[in-house]
Design a protein around this nucleic acid. Structure first.
Length: 482
RNA sequence: GGGCCGUUAGCUCAACUGGCAGAGCAGGGCACUCUUAAUGCCAAGGUUGCUGGUUCGAUUCCAGCACGGCCUACCA
């Protein structure tokens, strides 16, 4: 007896009660896990209809003696049900007696308006389409706990309408990007996610293994090199909406797998990609939100064109720094960040990068192109004519976040080989020190001059949905197992 | 990786300086034929994240661990 009581925790009790309903219905030959059910979405149901069907999750149950009101939620919205137990047929009554909040139910009846003006179905027939064995979170406060929301996203989606809206917007954004590019003659392609050599970015890769080939493979850190091989092959405008993987830390701006859009346009260049991205993002923002000015984390961000542009070197000048002055840069860098990176001493360009991130980037609230990045940190970009230290490259910043990166693609195979060699000599541990000969060989066949562009879809979604954490825009962000 | 904060019933939250852990919702029972955070009454529900320590006594103080959040570092 004592042992039994201890096991009767409220959760276990609810589970057992609902299991009993399930068993009872099955014994009565009433299937608690149904099949296809023809129904009208809640939002499309109108007043004065006969024999309307609705199906969805029971979100609220208000009993008044012999009558009850229920809220039924489907993806389109909510519809109220009015149930008078006596006017149900026998099977429906049994289903009704075993109905709980959280169950998926289907109902048939005629619509009317209640005294308070709410559109309601007077239910004649009712069945359970899926018996829920677990209680839903609280109806008023919903599910708030951030960890539970991420770990149990389905519950988050059931309870929090705003969360569903975020992911609807994300989906719509991707659709708009795709539409825009395909309407301009870009071909959507898919390239490998398992690479022999990780390339196209500087990041620690994930390693995996192919058994029959006995081969170590890397999950891609960027699709860039494969996409440019397609330009060699004669496709002139290609893009890929790609999942890429980087084996680095996790933060509000970083998830180990993330989504990027990369687009390449033959016979174009950095300037062409700048115009493209300006138009692309502007048109997505206005289609998605119906305005060019949005609010992000209490700041106003205006996407009306043209956007500001500033040279990378000038940004440092505005801080009173000459980026070439190693001593001055080191002094500045020491004051803002550690002198180590991956356990190695910082290089001049690491320091410049740290200063940029800390001092310059946060000021770039309105959409801003930072142009002409140094060659040393742009191994795949073409140099500015007459200025061999700089490349034809830009990064786009919005609300202090890096949103896009683009450049005139380096298509000289000899120079590319040299740049790879420089890069490898500087590379940190955990990264293969191997030159991507396949890519260099492809360039040797001749790649047309081209502009290339990458856009961070997760971060763009953050900005357009006013979220400060990347986990809020990824359905199932990576978390440590409990 | 480092710093700060958090973890109490299925959910949302209380518990002053260490003194029997408390509500609302959900769940159970009763009443109620237009409610919508329905209402009223009754009863139930807890290893206070885990492991140690201090203490007559720990949800409370201390240490370690786990998970999360924010900042920071690496990266995009």
């Amino acid at each position: 007896m004592e042992i039994q009581r201890r096991r009767n925790m409220s959760q276990e009790e609810i589970y057992q009660q609902r299991m009993a309903s399930r068993t009872f219905l099955q014994a009565e030959n009433l299937e608690p896990y149904g099949r296809a059910f023809a129904r009208t979405p809640a939002k499309e149901i109108t007043e004065g209809e006969k024999d309307v069907s609705a199906a969805g999750r029971v979100m609220a149950f208000r009993r008044h003696g012999r009558t009850s009101f229920l809220d039924l939620q489907d993806e389109s919205g909510k519809i109220q049900l009015y149930v008078k137990r006596e006017s149900l047929d026998g099977e429906s009554a049994k289903f009704f007696d075993n109905l709980d909040i959280g169950d998926i139910a289907g109902a048939v009846g005629d619509t009317f308006r209640t005294k308070t003006g709410e559109l309601t179905i007077a239910v004649r027939s009712l069945k359970i389409l899926a018996k829920s064995l677990r209680p839903l979170p609280e109806k008023w406060h919903g599910l708030k706990d951030v960890e539970t929301r991420y770990r149990c996203r389905e519950l988050d989606l059931i309870m929090n309408q705003e969360v569903r809206d975020v992911f609807r917007k994300r989906s719509r954004l991707v659709e708009l990007l795709r539409q825009f590019l395909t309407s301009r003659g870009f071909l959507e392609v898919e390239t490998p996610m398992m690479h022999l050599l990780p390339g196209g970015a500087e990041a620690r890769p994930f390693v995996t293994y192919h058994h029959t080939l006995g081969l170590n493979l890397y999950l891609r850190i960027a699709p860039e090199l494969y996409l440019k091989r397609l330009l060699v092959g004669g496709f002139e405008k290609v893009f890929e909406i790609n999942r890429s993987f980087r084996n680095e830390g996790i933060s509000t701006l970083h998830n180990p797998e993330f989504t990027m859009l990369e687009a390449y346009s033959a016979f174009s260049d950095c300037q062409g990609m700048m115009e493209l991205v300006e138009e692309l993002i502007n048109s997505c923002v206005t289609s998605l939100l119906g305005t060019e000015e949005i609010s992000y984390q209490k700041e106003r961000v205006n996407f009306s064109r043209p956007w500001k542009r500033i040279r990378w070197a000038e940004a440092f000048q505005q801080l009173g720094l000459d980026w070439r002055d190693e001593k001055q840069v080191q002094e500045k860098a020491e004051s803002i960040s550690s002198e180590e990176k991956d356990g190695l001493p910082r290089t001049h360009f690491d320091r410049l990068d740290a200063i940029f991130k800390k001092e310059i980037q946060p000021l770039l609230v309105q959409p801003t192109f930072v142009i002409e990045y140094p060659r040393a940190i742009s191994p795949l970009a073409k140099c500015v004519p007459g200025s061999p230290e700089m490349t034809e490259r830009f990064e786009l910043f919005v609300a202090g976040l890096e949103i896009a990166n683009a450049y005139s693609e380096l298509n000289d195979p000899v120079e590319q080989r040299e740049r790879f060699e420089e890069q490898i000599s500087r590379q940190t541990p955990d990264r293969p020190k191997e030159l991507d000969l396949t890519y260099v060989t492809a360039l040797e066949f001749g790649m047309p001059p081209a502009g290339g562009l990458g856009i961070g879809i997760d971060r763009l979604t953050m900005i357009l949905t006013d979220n400060s954490s990347i986990r809020e825009v990824i359905l199932f962000p990576l978390l440590r197992p409990r």
